[in-house]
Design a protein around this nucleic acid. Structure first.
Length: 454
DNA sequence: CTAGGGTTAG
């Protein structure tokens, strides 16, 4: 009895240490405890596995799992949920799916948390149908869904292009005996904004006001971003000011949102002030903040300062992401160093990022503008993924160079691939063909475009 | 233990 009490005490200790991220200390206490005859139980190990998975890496979590098994303690549903959470956090989605499978094979019944994470994983993999099947299983198997179940569902639907379905689900919440939380509103407002459903987003925002929930900094940042995205710059800044007046603590998210908008609208001076404020307020720069700063420096032509920051990233124990590389490539392009941009693109490709589309687009556009259209076309052929940016840029510049037939071919293949293209680029081709004496070709092209659209 | 906001190209 006494020993069980001390185990519980030890677990409380370990839980606290994990919360303040002192994992080594927590591990040391377990070792000391064992020496003093305090036996760790399944809760002890689960706490540590959760913390390792969340704060360190999956290998660390597995190492604890290994020791747990050696101590003769069998994993339970909490163990697996902790592992699932860690794997999902580190974007190891297929590992998460394997873990879920393994849990079933071990005869451990998943609980609602396990299903929540499984749903989340399917959404992350871009498989909303599978996620929905899990959701139905929850309902059909009489596992009571919790508010988070609905939040994950709505967020996943939004992220996978089904904002309307998320809205529908939102309207059934009460029927499910579930009251929307602030998170729920934030998810919906963000999802609807990104889907361009501004009116619906505004309705939800009003509903949030009537619900008795109090908006937080996330709500404000979301709405602010939404204003910037829809070209409502002044209104976005007003929200920024209101946030300050209401005394919200600004974090990297809000500063970066504002900086991004300032840079985009060419207000570099103001952007600089904003970033300075962020640093003065003692906010530790994360990779997104670095990306913002580097982008700003490139725009200001402060190349040396930008490079210095790039060096600093590694020193801070951060890792450059695809945005960092894209910003660098774009910056090199804008500085006229196409050769350097190409080299860095090759380097970026060797790192195996999931997407390099924007970097390619930036390079192609800059090459075209520098009169290197044929080189740009060769790069175009190397791309395995193209979008409307790619086509608009090439078609536009081919027209400018008077190469309307080539532009016409590209335009058509763009539309046949089901992609949009800037209206101005499209007009340029038609007009160009007409003006250079190819009226019939212009007519034919128009017909083909109409057919392709059907 | 799980969920929400920020950064790149015309």
């Amino acid at each position: 009895m006494g020993s069980r009490l001390s185990t519980r005490l030890m677990n409380i200790c370990i839980s606290c240490l994990c919360k303040v991220q002192k994992l080594e200390k927590a591990e040391a206490i377990i070792v000391d405890g064992i020496r003093l005859g305090v036996i760790p139980d399944v809760v002890t190990y689960n706490t540590l596995i959760a913390a390792c998975g969340r704060l360190v890496c999956m290998d660390a979590a597995y190492a604890v799992l290994h020791r747990m098994k050696e101590a003769g303690i069998s994993p339970n549903v909490f163990t697996y949920n902790s592992l699932l959470a860690g794997a999902t956090r580190h974007c190891q989605i297929s590992l998460s799916l394997d873990l879920f499978e393994e849990m079933l094979q071990m005869g451990i019944s998943p609980n609602v948390w396990s299903y929540n994470m499984l749903m989340h994983c399917f959404f992350r993999l871009g498989k909303p149908d599978e996620a929905y099947r899990v959701f139905r299983d929850i309902i059909l198997n009489n596992i009571s869904p919790c508010p988070t179940t609905f939040n994950i569902m709505m967020n996943g639907l939004c992220k996978n292009g089904y904002a309307d379905n998320a809205l529908m689900l939102f309207r059934t919440l009460e029927r499910h005996g579930c009251k929307p939380e602030l998170v729920t509103y934030n998810i919906l407002i963000n999802g609807l904004c990104k889907a361009g459903r501004l009116k619906a987003a505004r309705r939800i925002l009003r509903q949030l006001g009537e619900s008795g929930c109090v908006p937080n900094a996330i709500t404000y940042t979301t709405v602010m971003k939404c204003c910037f995205r829809s070209g409502n710059f002044e209104e976005g800044i007003n929200i920024f000011t209101e946030m300050k007046r209401k005394g919200f603590a600004f974090d990297a998210f809000s500063y970066c949102t504002v900086t991004g908008a300032l840079v985009k609208t060419g207000r570099l001076e103001k952007a600089n002030e904003c970033m300075e404020q962020m640093v003065e307020n003692g906010i530790v720069l994360d990779i997104v903040s670095y990306n913002n700063l580097i982008n700003l420096y490139f725009r200001e032509g402060k190349l040396e300062a930008a490079y210095k920051l790039l060096d600093e990233i590694e020193g801070e124990g951060l890792e450059c992401d695809k945005y960092t590389h894209t910003i660098l490539i774009d910056g090199l392009c804008k500085a006229g160093n196409i050769e350097g941009a190409l080299q860095h693109l090759q380097y970026m490709n060797s790192m195996g990022f999931d997407s390099n589309l924007v970097a390619y687009n930036s390079l192609i556009d800059r090459m075209c503008k520098s009169g290197l259209i044929d080189q740009a076309l060769r790069i175009f052929d190397l791309m395995d993924l193209k979008d409307s940016f790619t086509y608009s840029s090439l078609v536009h510049n081919l027209c400018k160079a008077g190469r309307f037939r080539c532009a016409s071919k590209l335009l058509l293949s763009c539309i046949r691939n089901g992609m949009k293209i800037l209206k101005s680029s499209q007009r340029a081709v038609i007009q160009g063909l007409r003006n250079s004496g190819f009226r019939r070709d212009a007519g034919k092209l128009l017909t083909k475009i109409r057919v392709a659209k059907i």
